[in-house]
């Protein structure tokens, strides 16, 4: 396996692990799939639609998100997602864990 490929594989695993936290953190206000995709991209996190949409469904089925179909401003119907109460609790825990993990990694890598 080439070095580049190995790096890409590890990065993919890293991104996969952090994506749920990123998505939950961006849904304190309602977003539909495409607008969320752009919000993440604006903050530097490029995600494929094919990764984001199934993730949104999974988080919703776990009770961390709520969603409903709506027509806003006479546009086409869109599915709007927002974080649930349980999602907020989980996100807070995950934020703490993430900070601890970042500290640990910084100690190791510095």
């Amino acid at each position: 396996m080439e070095n580049d490929e190995l790096v890409q594989n590890v990065l993919l695993e890293l991104r996969r692990g952090t994506l749920s936290i990123a998505v939950l953190s961006q849904l304190s206000k309602e977003e539909y799939g495409y607008s969320l995709l752009k919000a993440l991209s604006d903050k530097g996190l490029e995600v494929d639609q094919s990764t984001l949409y199934p993730l949104l469904r999974r988080l919703e089925s776990q009770g961390l998100l709520q969603s409903d179909w709506r027509i806003v401003d006479e546009a086409r119907p869109r599915r709007y997602y927002v974080i649930s109460t349980q999602g907020k609790e989980i996100l807070n825990k995950l934020k703490r864990e993430w900070s601890a993990m970042v500290d640990t990694m910084q100690k190791m890598l510095s």
Binding site: Y32, G33, Y34, Q49, Y53, R57, W69, R76, P77, R78, R79
Partner: peptide, 15 residues
């Protein structure tokens, strides 16, 4: 889940 997923993909593609 077919109808729901189809509607969501359509909405995204149109956006």
């Amino acid at each position: 889940q077919r109808a729901d997923i189809e509607a969501e993909i359509r909405s995204t593609l149109e956006d």
